[in-house]
Amino acid sequence: MDMSIYHRINCFFLFSFLGYLLECAVLSYENKRPVLNRGFGHGPFCIIYGFGATGALILLKPLSGNPVHLYFAAMAMATFMELVTAHMMIKLFGSFWWDYSRKLLNYKGIICLESSIAWGFLGIFYFRFLNGFVNQMAGMIPENLERLVAMSLLIFYLADFIYTMRIQLRGDCDDDDTSMIGRLKVY
C-alpha cells in the first residue's frame, strides 16, 4: 500500500502519542502516583516511539514472520536507541530523562535487562497489532485534512521542541517552564 508522506507523519505522531501514554502508565504504576509528562517538550509525545516504529518498519519488517528473530532484533534495536538517545542527551544537557539504576542488570541507569525484554515483546506486538491499528487510525483522517493535520502536528512539535531546547540549554527552567527537571538523571 502506497502511503502519502502526510499519512506517515500522522502515524509517526500517533506512535509518539501511544508511547507517551505507555510511559505515563508504566511510570504511574511503578511510582504509585500519576506521572503525566514523559515527553521531551510540553506536548503529549515521546518521539522516540515514533522513530522506533519507523525504524522497526524499515529494519525489522523482513523478520516480522519469525517471532523469535523479531523478538531479539526488536530488543536489540530499542535498547540501542535508548543508549544512543541517552548519550545524546548527556552531551546536550548533562543528563537524561529516565533512570534504571535501581533495576537489575542495568548499565549506568541508561539501559536495563527488564526494559530490553519488554522492548522485544513490544516489537512483536507492533507487527501483530499496533502497526495496523495506527495505520487504520491515521486512515480515518479525511484525505482533505490529512496534510493539515500532519503539518499542524509538525509545527506544534517543532515549536515545542525549540522552546524546550532553549530553556534546557539556558538552564533556567523551573517548574512553571517545564516539569522535566524532576525527571533528569544527572550523569
Rank of each mutant, 00 (worst) to 15 (best):
L18M: 13
L18S: 05
L18T: 10
G19K: 06
G19Y: 07
G19F: 03
G19A: 04
G19V: 02
G19T: 02
G19M: 03
Y20E: 14
Y20T: 01
Y20I: 00
Y20V: 01
Y20K: 00
Y20G: 01
L21E: 10
L21S: 06
L21A: 13
L21M: 12
L22V: 10
L22G: 04
L22S: 03
L22P: 00
L22H: 07
E23C: 04
E23G: 03
E23V: 05
E23T: 03
E23S: 03
E23F: 08
C24T: 12
C24E: 12
C24S: 15
C24D: 05
C24R: 10
A25V: 13
A25K: 02
A25E: 01
A25W: 11
V26Q: 08
V26M: 11
L27Y: 13
L27H: 13
L27M: 13
L27N: 15
L27A: 09
L27G: 01
S28K: 06
S28W: 04
S28A: 09
S28H: 07
S28Y: 08
Y29M: 09
Y29D: 00
Y29E: 00
E30Q: 15
E30D: 10
E30P: 01
N31H: 07
K32A: 13
K32Y: 05
K32F: 04
K32G: 03
K32R: 15
R33F: 00
R33N: 01
R33S: 09
R33P: 00
R33K: 15
P34H: 02
V35L: 03
V35R: 05
N37P: 00
N37F: 05
N37E: 10
N37K: 12
N37A: 07
N37H: 12
R38H: 11
R38W: 14
R38T: 08
R38Y: 12
R38C: 14
G39S: 09
G39T: 08
G39A: 11
F40W: 14
F40R: 08
F40G: 10
G41F: 12
G41Q: 02
G41Y: 09
G41A: 05
G41W: 12
H42W: 08
H42P: 00
H42Y: 07
H42M: 07
G43V: 04
G43F: 11
P44L: 12
F45Y: 15
F45I: 14
F45C: 13
C46A: 13
C46D: 01
C46M: 12
C46Y: 03
I47L: 15
I47R: 00
I47G: 01
I48C: 09
I48S: 06
Y49K: 06
Y49D: 07
Y49T: 08
Y49S: 06
Y49H: 14
Y49F: 15
Y49A: 08
G50E: 03
G50N: 05
G50L: 08
F51L: 14
F51S: 06
F51N: 04
G52Y: 08
G52M: 05
A53C: 02
T54A: 14
T54K: 02
T54P: 01
T54Q: 11
T54F: 13
A56C: 12
A56F: 11
L57H: 09
L57G: 11
L57P: 00
I58M: 10
L59A: 15
L60G: 03
L60P: 01
L60V: 03
L60N: 02
K61N: 14
K61Y: 14
K61I: 01
K61M: 09
K61V: 04
P62G: 06
P62R: 02
P62C: 07
P62T: 06
P62L: 07
P62A: 07
